[in-house]
Amino acid sequence: MSRKPVDIGDPDRLYTVTGGRSEADDAFDLVTLIVSECEPTAGMQSEHVRILELCRHPTALVEVSAELKLPITVVRILLGDLHAMGKVSARHPRAADSVATLPETALLQEVLHGLRNL
């Protein structure tokens, strides 16, 4: 037997965490702030519990991902579940709101051209 170092990771694979899903909805941006709406209850998936605890204060998705040591996609799927159950709410950063007020891309390109032509 090759005596490899003992495992220090976790035995559960990511597809068991997501229940076999690999497609996340796009409702969550990397910087979307997540806030938990309720306390975790008994019998919940441990990742859900941890997300709910972590997001008592608004926390960005990417932070949740880092804290849980899970890939972004997996966290998105989990958050999607919680969101669907109404246990978390997502606050999109204000910058996202201002996207609509930004100048048109064409205008910016014109400005760029003008600057280059200087």
Partner: peptide
């Protein structure tokens, strides 16, 4: 923990 045990088996 038991949850990981179960997931590790079911996976």
């Amino acid at each position: 923990v038991m949850e990981s045990i179960l997931r590790g088996s079911v996976g």
